[in-house]
């Protein structure tokens, strides 16, 4: 899985993220509600943790047996791209069938 570009990591670092799941984007003024796994993933992405390790982290923190965490994470990063929060990477979402 490709990692985020440095500009995307900087952009994610600029977000104001609360423990309650409230995310504010200072550049656009949009705010978002995030669930617990999204908060965990965002925190790791801000620290430039590689995707494979984020998936492991999610498995460690949440009851995620038999779940395609890698696929979900790729989808999440794609969604961040749609919200303009990371630079969209055409190759980034191709890991959809992974996890086997």
């Amino acid at each position: 899985m490709s990692e985020l570009a440095p500009a995307s990591v900087r952009r994610l670092r600029s977000l104001a993220i609360s423990d309650a799941g409230f995310v504010f984007d200072p550049r656009t003024g949009h705010s978002y509600s995030a669930n617990a796994t999204a908060l965990c993933a965002l925190d790791a992405l801000k620290r430039d943790v590689p995707s494979s390790e984020i998936a492991a982290l999610l498995r460690e923190r949440f009851a995620a047996d038999d779940v395609e965490v890698e696929h979900d994470l790729a989808e999440f990063i794609r969604a961040l791209g749609e919200h303009g929060l990371v630079q969209s990477d055409p190759g980034g979402g191709s890991n959809g069938s992974g996890g086997n």
């Binding site: 104001a16 609360s18 309650a20 409230f22």
Partner: peptide, 11 residues
């Protein structure tokens, strides 16, 4: 600031 909205949306 965002805290007012955060509080209302979260709780």
């Amino acid at each position: 600031d965002q805290s007012d909205l955060e509080c209302l949306l979260a709780t």
